[in-house]
């Protein structure tokens, strides 16, 4: 359960978290980006299961960051299946990571990808707090 008031300017981060190195890397990045205050990781499985609370949360999110491991794009398509479209999708294989079945993640690769993502997100004009910003302004 997230804290109260995780809304407004908090970007919802959804990762495919699939059964490959790139899938697992999306989850790692989602957690790291959450830790850096760039958004808040949420449960893609709940959306896939069509649980009303999860689907509504995605529909109500001001911005959504989708992290897919490969071009199959399960995370993006899961959202589209419930009527949520987002242009903010990143595919790790298109960012230079090669897909394989090795689930142990390379730390250097994770850091490099995170740096690339943070740089890309910082360039975006609105809808997402800048790096380090706190998503909850509740008093």
């Amino acid at each position: 359960m997230s804290d109260c008031c995780q809304s407004g300017n908090a970007t919802m981060i959804l990762a495919c978290a699939g059964g490959s190195n790139v899938g697992q890397m999306t989850n790692r990045l989602a957690v790291d980006l959450t830790g850096s205050g760039l958004g808040k990781v949420a449960c893609l499985a709940g959306i896939g299961a069509r649980l009303p609370g999860f689907v509504q949360a995605a529909k109500d999110a001001e911005s959504i960051l989708v992290l897919d491991g490969c071009p199959i794009a399960c995370a993006r398509k899961t959202l589209e299946a419930v009527g949520v479209n987002t242009a903010d999708c990143y595919v790790l294989t298109e960012m230079g990571m090669e897909k394989n079945k090795q689930l142990a993640l390379d730390e250097q690769a994770a850091m490099k990808l995170k740096t690339t993502l943070v740089a890309a997100l910082d360039k975006q004009p609105a809808g997402r707090p800048a790096s380090g910003a706190k998503p909850c302004a509740c008093s």
Binding site: C5, Q6, S7, A10, G53
Partner: peptide, 16 residues
């Protein structure tokens, strides 16, 4: 899983 949320007659209308 996110609040605040609004439920009307048992139907979730807004989350977060």
């Amino acid at each position: 899983m996110m609040t605040p949320a609004l439920v009307i007659d048992g139907e979730i209308k807004a989350v977060g």
